[in-house]
Design a binder for these strands. Structure first.
Length: 829
RNA sequence: GCCCGGGUGGCGGAAUGGCAGACGCGGCGGAUUCAAAAUCCGCUGCCCGAAAGGGCGUGUGGGUUCGACUCCCACCCCGGGCACCA
């Protein structure tokens, strides 16, 4: 029977054994006083949804390779894992089954951990943390209160996004095209009193600090767009009296613009339908129409309102009142329009149809005057002109270019005392609370006497939701009906108080977990400052592009806020020094998901073929940053390759028949040099995430060794031994089980992952002979083997002497000869 | 609309101004075998040619260069992000 053949590769036998040994030996545990140079390698906090899917496997394979590679480089690598275990799926399951989310979640964590272990991913398992662990929740709650004290968290009424499907409010970042990113339900705008986090206080720093991060440009760009800084002027438009003159007895209407230079072309003004001064600025004869318009806008869904289609005349209405353009002194009408947003700037704009296409369309529909204030080029045939050019029709701005005109207009506004230079951000404050059960409770109470909102004292934290709750089909938070939880006493006055039943957005949990990993045992503090100083920032963060905005923005904000609150060193401004965003695994072109039923179970493959084959196939398939289709994994080829390595390294006598000892031949030396070149190559490829070509390198070298051992000359024992050992050491981070097993077989149970990374002998990287290519007019005509140190003139002479060149030239004299000795000669004929 | 990323054999991909197609998959042929699987070896961009050899070839068109998959300009197609932000 083949199965009993000792030299066969049987992954199932060896993988479990090595996984156990890595745990037992604590190979990847690191203490806080570890003397080695430290490296923090982290894969994004996974939501525990059950056994790993193929996307997880890809992500954690890349992370694991880096952990093992850096460890072999002699660094002390912090490689922790945790579980982002709060969230809606567990609560929705609870609603269906009636079972509490905790056992459900613990079960999923068990499944995911076991999968990670089975793919050979190694962690310091002593440091594992979970969001729903009260020991972790406590610090969320402490931070909430510190933020509240510092004014970074506040409670206010505001128009917020409400998802009826998830029965909770959502952050702006969780609304995609007017739909809930989780449930795809249309999101409604509701005016609710809510907890907000003042992330906008850090808007400028969040923007500036992007510059120094080694992150993909794409992610930085997405963050910049999301923060959306714009620079301009905010100023008042005086309300016009009946005769068109400016009234000084009422507040002017404030507007924000990025183009103060075009103010002379302002021929009307527009307010958001939700603007608080609409009533005041509506004339009696227009009031019925304005009211109808506001009602109509209020009834329209967010998605309708976002759509750019639809009759422009249906999108606005005149208020009947006028304001004065302070630049021209002339009265201009005030409109309402649904495209002006109450949440941005002042909720009112000056309209300059000559320089803004939307204003142009509106002006055309309402027959309003259009005045150009920037001269378009002669060949311009469009409508609104948004480009640069000299100012016209603008009195004292005429002739100035846009930049100068802006500055002068702002100076004038300041001189007149009616406006100022103003920077605006698109970024909004983070809506921090959710009306759901399975999250971290917000540690505040509402005093029924006079104290108002009161923080629960730290010695009473963490507040953990009770287990005896009844889940409702509506998704309504069961805490609302749990009298025992709800009713408490005010920490201030001992009077009756109601507990806050909202929980924190689960993005809070993932906003500082990397800091907790530095010191997860701490019971007195969220983490020790010195521990954070030692390991932070994360040297290499790995995760999906889908977190480009949400998680990465919140974690950056938390890091800055915690530094300013003194939890971390003041200069720790950024959590993730280097970010790598790996591509997604797709099935037949579409994203894999459980609901589409197109997932493949990595566990099944591992059972039959082993984790190393799967890891290798993932590494080989595509550059890590790119999306990959599961069908493109070449699982059989990779398994075949590992078998080839096995036969070679286990010295299968059928394969290796002809072994010599003693002095080395030219062939032996070439094999030896190839091994050194491979070290050089693979090291570079690991450094730059070129894992697919590193795998190609392993395969090429193995092919070379196969030819070597099967040649008539045979293989030198020492040369072969070094070559195979080198191959195993280079493969150890990529396919850890087979590499470890073969190394232990060959080296008396030595542990390959505790060895240091091989280094190439520079002397052996020098080549003595190269293939010089000879071109005529850039086309390849001949190849000649030459000495590496050949002179330019010798190279040219050899090229010219080539019979193929002579035949092509056919007696003609070359116009010019380009020589790049020893690699190339190009003859220009 | 604006902003990114990409377009290379039958397929996944390699090649950071110098041999296009490394490596793998697939295909074809051979060895081994009673036979098959497995394994090992060889060939495999397209066209012409018996061969030697030649021509063509990296989305399209132009440009820079002795030389372009690579740099520049324009366009086409695919993927992604932002999208009434004043």
């Amino acid at each position: 029977m083949e199965d009993t053949e000792p030299l066969r590769y049987h992954p199932a036998d060896i993988e479990q054994r090595w996984q156990q040994r890595w745990l037992d030996d604590g190979t990847y545990e690191i203490d806080n006083d570890d003397p080695r140079e430290s490296r923090f390698v982290l894969s994004m906090y996974p939501y525990p949804s059950g056994p790993a899917h193929i996307g997880h496997v890809r992500n954690y394979t890349f992370g694991d390779l880096l952990v093992r590679y850096n460890t072999m480089q002699g660094r002390g690598v912090l490689s922790p894992i945790g579980f982002d275990s709060f969230g809606l799926p567990a609560e929705n399951a609870a609603i269906k089954s009636g079972e509490h989310p905790r056992p459900f979640t613990d079960g999923k964590i068990e499944e995911l951990s076991s999968s990670l272990r089975r793919i050979g991913a190694v962690y310091d398992t002593r440091r594992t943390i979970k969001s729903h662990d009260p020991a972790y929740m406590k610090w969320n709650q402490v931070f909430f209160q510190k933020f509240y004290e510092a004014g970074l968290i506040y409670r206010t009424e505001a128009p917020v996004n409400w998802c009826p499907g998830c029965h909770t409010v959502l952050a702006n970042e969780q609304v995609v095209d007017g739909l809930c990113e989780r449930s795809d339900d249309p999101v409604e705008k509701r005016n609710l009193e809510q907890w907000f986090c003042r992330i906008t206080a850090y808007a400028q720093e969040l923007l500036d600090d992007l510059d120094d991060l080694e992150w993909p440009d794409r992610v930085k760009l997405m963050q910049r767009n999301w923060i959306g800084r714009s620079e301009g002027a905010e100023f008042g438009l005086p309300i016009a009296a009946a005769d068109g003159t400016a009234r000084s007895d009422v507040e002017p209407l404030m507007v924000y613009t990025t183009r103060p230079d075009t103010s002379f072309g302002m021929t009307f003004a527009v307010m958001s339908p939700e603007h608080p001064r609409v009533d005041e600025l509506t004339t009696d004869d227009q009031r019925p129409l304005v009211e109808a318009f506001r009602q109509e806008v209020a009834n329209r869904s967010e998605i309708d309102r976002l759509s750019t289609s639809g009759e422009i005349t249906k999108r606005g209405i005149a208020t009947g009142s006028h304001v004065v353009n302070p630049f021209t002194g002339k009265p201009i009408p005030v409109f309402l329009a649904d495209y002006v947003l109450i949440t941005y700037g002042t909720g009112a704009i000056m309209a300059v149809p000559g320089q803004d296409q939307r204003d142009w369309d509106f002006a055309a529909a309402y027959d309003l005057p259009i005045v150009r204030t920037v001269a378009p080029p002669d060949d311009f045939d469009g409508e609104a002109f948004t480009g640069d050019g000299p100012a016209i029709n603008s009195e004292w701005l005429d002739g100035l270019e846009v930049t100068e005109a802006k500055a002068k207009a702002i100076d004038w506004l300041v001189d007149q005392g009616i406006g100022e230079h103003k920077i605006n951000f698109r970024l909004r404050d983070w809506l921090f609370a959710r009306q759901r059960f399975w999250g971290c409770p917000i540690p505040m109470v509402y005093c029924q006497n006079e104290c108002g909102i009161v923080a629960v004292p730290e010695d009473q934290l963490p507040i953990v939701a009770p287990d005896d709750v009844e889940f409702r089909a509506s998704g309504e938070n069961p805490l609302l009906h749990h009298e025992k939880f709800l009713n408490t006493t005010c920490p201030n006055c001992d009077g009756p108080a109601k507990r806050e039943t909202d929980t924190m957005d689960t993005f809070v949990d993932s906003s500082w977990y990397f800091l907790r990993f530095c010191d997860p045992w701490n019971t007195d503090e969220p983490f020790d400052r010195a521990a954070a100083e030692k390991f932070m920032p994360v040297d290499q963060y790995i995760g999906g592009i889908e977190h480009a905005i949400l998680h990465l923005m919140y974690a950056r904000f938390f890091t800055k806020a915690l530094a300013d609150l003194g939890y971390t060193p003041k200069d720790l401004r950024e959590p993730f020094e280097r970010l790598f965003t790996q591509g997604m695994v797709r099935m037949g072109g579409s994203k894999m998901s459980k609901s589409k039923g197109n997932t493949v179970a990595p566990e099944d493959f591992i059972n039959d073929h082993g984790a190393d084959s799967l890891r290798l196939a993932i590494l080989q398939a595509k550059p890590p940053a790119e999306d990959v289709d599961f069908e493109d994994f070449q699982l059989e080829g990779c398994e075949r390759f590992l078998n080839r390595v096995w036969r070679l390294a286990a010295t299968d006598p059928e394969l290796i028949k002809n072994i010599r000892s003693g002095a080395t031949t030219a062939t032996d030396n070439e094999i030896d040099a190839a091994a050194h070149r491979l070290i050089d190559r693979v090291t570079g490829e690991y450094e730059r995430w070129a894992y697919n070509t590193a795998v190609a390198g392993f395969m090429e070298f193995t092919n070379t060794l196969y030819k070597y051992v099967q040649s008539d000359e045979g293989a030198n024992d020492e040369t072969l031994s070094f070559a195979v050992d080198t191959l195993l050491r280079l493969m150890a981070p990529a396919v850890p089980h087979i590499s470890a097993e073969l190394w232990a077989m060959r080296h008396d149970d030595e542990h390959i992952h505790e060895l240091t990374w091989p280094t190439a002998d520079p002397a052996k990287l020098v080549v003595s002979e190269v293939t010089m290519i000879v071109q005529i007019n850039g086309k390849l005509r001949d190849r000649i083997d030459v000495a590496a140190e050949i002179t330019e003139s010798d190279a040219e002479a050899m090229a010219m002497a080539s019979p193929k060149v002579q035949a092509q030239l056919d007696g003609a004299t070359p116009k010019k000869v380009i020589v790049r000795a020893p690699n190339l000669v190009n003859i220009v004929a």
